[in-house]
Design a protein around this nucleic acid. Structure first.
Lengths: 210, 210
DNA sequence: GCCTCAAACTTAATATCATTCAGTTCTTGG
DNA sequence: CCAAGAACTGAATGATATTAAGTTTGAGGC
């Protein structure tokens, strides 16, 4: 038995990516054997080489898929929040953090990939990665148009904003003593603090009872 | 030839850690073969098993050594800066960022280790890791005693502070298109922004020309 | 000084993967 | 129906971690 019958043709490339994401979550590390992926897909390891140059190429595709999924979630929030830029920044950040905490290993592959993956391993080199950054910058720009963050350099501010949330998520994911709920509380509190800082730069200061 | 002569006795454990750190920097990834470490030390791979349960144990020791070195650098700054808590926060953060950018792979091993390393892989579970966090909290407390950050929850604020710097360093290290100088500029600007925010909460507001 | 034993290595063996090679069987265009 | 290429499979190769078995050295008792 060598070449499969046409009826049992399966889209190995897509399934390999999906199954790898599942196995990453299941095993909690990047060291997923190709044989395990192949078995999950329903083929043998060498068959994967017809669709990916090597294991790194598969992991790069997985990473790209991860960015794509994250972008979709953030974009859905963006659409829901039309007309409320501050609300988008908050809920978009929540969505980002929730994605990271729900898919810890995939998130680590996306933002802290092993150097061996290949040349293009910064988030900006991925199309969806750029789009995600772009969503954040758009959110900040809309806030600025409403009078928040007057005079701020958005590129610089956006980097800092992302750094803080990514750093918080990353540190939380590292802490084995925390369960998911505790990580979420901690991360949410960081995001809320950021939002308060932005809100405080706004034009219509509500009476604050400090 | 089996057991070495006494005169050629070498402290394999210490040398293995040092050489591994060197090889991590040289190769730019965690995938340093034990045989390479052994060769650098001047013994064979199985000899390392007399000093470390396995490769993960060696990497854990390397990680601990990394935290130790980072703590030493931060502590030196702390001593130099007695009486200037704001200055310590700034220069301590510079030292932290410089360490990370100068030792990218070691820093990644310290703060984004593979899950397979073992149970205790959050920075707080390492003694030196805790000490580093402690230094930061002390710096913040001293600032608060001088009137900065009034009423702030330092534990929460410290986490956010660390998150931002760690996130900035981490994102910069990921970006292959940046050289060391560019990463440093970007990170320094993040630290400076943080310091401005803290300074702005201070008691003696200088005349600001906004 | 000699003997025994444990320490501290060594070399050889095993297991797990990634990757490549050499078939094998479909499918498709003629 | 045939030839050629597509798409796999199973076996082979090579790198590595880890374990097993064997060897030499240093130390303590006599």
């Amino acid at each position: 038995m060598a070449r499969p019958r046409k009826e049992q043709e399966l889209d190995i490339a897509r399934r390999a990516v999906d199954e790898t994401i599942r196995l990453l979550a299941e095993r909690g590390g990047f060291d997923v054997p190709l044989t395990a992926v192949a078995q999950a897909v329903g083929c043998t390891a060498p068959a994967l080489y017809g669709h990916f140059r090597n294991k790194n190429a598969l992991l790069r595709a997985v990473r790209e898929e991860g960015f794509g999924r994250l972008y979709n979630e953030k974009f859905a929030v963006f659409e829901q929040m039309r007309g409320d830029p501050l609300g988008y920044l908050r809920d978009g950040s929540y969505a980002y953090a929730r994605f990271a905490l729900d898919n810890p290993t995939l998130y680590r592959l996306m933002l802290s990939p092993p150097q061996t993956l290949g040349a293009s391993d910064d988030p900006w080199s991925s199309k969806a990665g750029r789009q995600i950054l772009c969503l954040l910058l758009t959110g900040l720009r809309l806030c600025q148009e409403r009078g928040y963050l007057p005079g701020a350099d958005l590129r610089r501010y956006g980097f800092m904003f992302w750094s803080t949330i990514h750093g918080a998520v990353n540190l939380n994911l590292q802490n084995r003593r925390l369960d998911l709920a505790a990580m979420w509380d901690s991360t949410q509190s960081v995001i809320d603090s950021l939002m308060e800082m932005i809100a405080a730069t706004g034009p219509t200061e509500l009476p604050n009872n400090s």
